[in-house]
């Protein structure tokens, strides 16, 4: 099937598609100029701005310009920061990466042990409690989780700062909020793949050799159940970046998520475009590498 060539072609097409959507996004409303200028702008200001941004050119020309500049990392100047949009986005990126990576770590620390536990202790009372927690976690709006944590640990108990970035204490609540959001999915995958592996013959063999149950579970079973677990963790990076948009806004965390929401409020669309493209690029890269890894680790999958 020429998997590698097809995959490469597909990556290029996805990059192209991402930029195309980012370009047409601002033309959805009809006139991007009216979108970006305040309603009290005069006719002369509108025309001057239209000319300056190149919106008076034919759409096809604008599109080609946008693509050729985007390839070079040029998304135009942010209307609010008066700096290249890409630069503004990249400055905020470390904060977002810090938050999402820490949240991933937390979610794995919550989901993997609990998932294994509920697979090993099937139909026990505590397994049912884990299931209840999973359903609650899946059903809570992410910003509500954040507000409730804020109410409890910030306002009532005064243990943690309610917003901003700086110390480890600042990181805990937003990261935990995100972790609660993604952990249920990971937990379910851990549980179901562990259940599947624990039925296999080699587990029975390991047990009959007289190995300690702990060794059987953590060494033999977990190792063999790890492919779907790693896959789901990888795919969740995209979900986490989306969740970061809301979480960063709740906790005033100065990352790309908060930046894009503010850019939308202030109609700073060159900046919105840069945020959208960069975040989508990260997710696409993540999806492709998880996919490639999955194919590599799992010889059963050939193509499709």
């Amino acid at each position: 099937m020429g998997t590698l060539a097809t995959q490469c072609l597909r990556i290029v097409l996805v990059l192209f598609g991402i930029s195309t959507i980012a370009f047409f996004l601002i033309h959805l409303s009809g006139d991007p100029v009216l979108l970006m200028l305040p309603p009290e702008a005069t006719q002369e200001e509108i025309e001057a701005f239209r000319h300056q941004m190149g919106f008076d050119r034919p759409l096809s020309e604008q599109y080609i310009n946008f693509l050729s500049q985007a390839v070079r990392g040029d998304f135009g100047e942010s209307l609010k920061f008066h700096q290249p949009s890409l630069q503004v986005v990249l400055e905020r990126m470390p904060a977002t990466l810090e938050l999402t990576l820490f949240a991933t770590l937390l979610s794995v620390l919550i989901a993997v042990p609990l998932g294994i536990y509920s697979a090993v202790n099937r139909n026990s009372l505590s397994e049912n409690l884990v299931t209840v927690a999973v359903f609650l976690g899946q059903s809570m709006p992410i910003f509500w989780t954040g507000i409730m944590l804020m109410l409890l640990f910030g306002v009532k108990l005064h243990w943690l700062p309610v917003s901003g970035r700086g110390t480890w204490a600042h990181l805990l609540m937003p990261a935990f909020t995100l972790a609660v959001w993604v952990a249920p999915t990971t937990l379910r995958i851990v549980r179901s793949s562990m259940l599947e592996v624990l039925q296999q013959d080699y587990i029975r063999t390991a047990r009959s050799k007289g190995l300690a149950e702990r060794v059987v579970i953590y060494k033999h079973a977990l190792k063999n159940a790890s492919i779907p677990i790693i896959t789901v963790i990888g795919f969740q990076i995209g979900k986490l970046l989306g969740g970061a948009v809301v979480t960063e806004t709740v906790f005033a965390w100065p990352g790309v998520g908060q930046l894009v929401v503010k850019a939308i409020y202030t109609a700073d669309y060159p900046l919105v475009q840069a945020c959208v493209v960069i975040l989508a690029l990260i997710v696409a890269a993540m999806n492709f590498s998880v996919d490639a890894m999955y194919r590599h680790l799992n010889p059963k999958i050939k193509s499709g």
Binding site: G17, I21, V245, I264, V272, N287
Partner: peptide, 24 residues
């Protein structure tokens, strides 16, 4: 499938957010 890949690259909320902001 390529369109699906493109759509999946956008964090769902980000795409929805930006689109609604533009459309009103």
């Amino acid at each position: 499938s390529t369109v699906i890949d493109i759509m999946m690259a956008f964090p769902f909320i980000l795409l929805a957010l930006a689109t609604i902001a533009v459309m009103g």
